[in-house]
Write a protein that binds this DNA or RNA. Sequence first.
DNA 1: CTGATTTCAGGTAAACTGAGATTG
DNA 2: CCAATCTCAGTTCACCTGAAATCA
Lengths: 154, 154
Amino acid sequence: MTAPDLDPTRTAVALSTALARLRSRLRQEGGTFETGMTITQLSALQRLIDHGPMSGAALAASEHLRPQSMWEVVAALGKEGLVSRGPDPTDGRKLLVAATDRGRAVVERVLTSREAWLTRAVEAVTDEREHRVLLEAAVLMKRLAEYAPEPDRG
Amino acid sequence: MTAPDLDPTRTAVALSTALARLRSRLRQEGGTFETGMTITQLSALQRLIDHGPMSGAALAASEHLRPQSMWEVVAALGKEGLVSRGPDPTDGRKLLVAATDRGRAVVERVLTSREAWLTRAVEAVTDEREHRVLLEAAVLMKRLAEYAPEPDRG
DNA sequence: CTGATTTCAGGTAAACTGAGATTG
DNA sequence: CCAATCTCAGTTCACCTGAAATCA
């Protein structure tokens, strides 16, 4: 039996509205960790670093964007020299997108800077236990984003 | 001394990218709890229910939007009969925005429906402990969104 | 020929900025 | 007269859909 105070719908609504409010505040604060990057760009770049070179279509699918939208993101990153595009040797339709050394360096710099508004907010308004809750929740939210329902089987 | 694995910058980045990915996935899934409302509209409506009638400017500030943007949100909610607008008896410049009974009913319905994609995802991919983590994180994220740095005092 | 990938063109939604009008 | 609020108009940004062109 699930505890009566744990209602997945209320959690879903709370999570959605928290998302909206934090996102608005981030926009208000300039948002993007002092690089020109949008969070979508940062997320895609991190994916490339973690996963290695991928086709645009695969990268789009993993980030839940349309390929056309992802190519815009990749073009923006490419213009800054953070990713490179090259032909896939085994499939002439694909272009492999890869993080460059410069891209890796920028992400590393983002991950060690203390200046971002959200970093200061986390330091200021959470104690150690709450900080751990946020960190775990980030992992859980990524897991939620990947959720694929089991197909019905007779 | 803070535990060495707890780095506010890494938490901030993890939270940001989790935000981006979950938001993309929500858009892909249709997002808005089977009402025509956007999450911004839902969040504003909840605020009105919790707080009582507010001026457009105050509501905008609390949700971190510009007044002009908030008036668009309010207009959309008004068209569905979920909020009403009336003059402030004490200040002729302001219009007080208030949730209607219909608005309260819609939020109540959202909070009890099991159909939303995110609700099913929460049920499916989290155990009870993780569910609690998400719920608390939603509260913490709203707190982060409200963070106001202490003014320097010499 | 079918299907997947990339590219090109145009469109939408949710926010924004800027410039009045009204009221305190 | 100055400041706050609301309104009107135009703009931007990050996505989207649709339709080619290329290749397996």
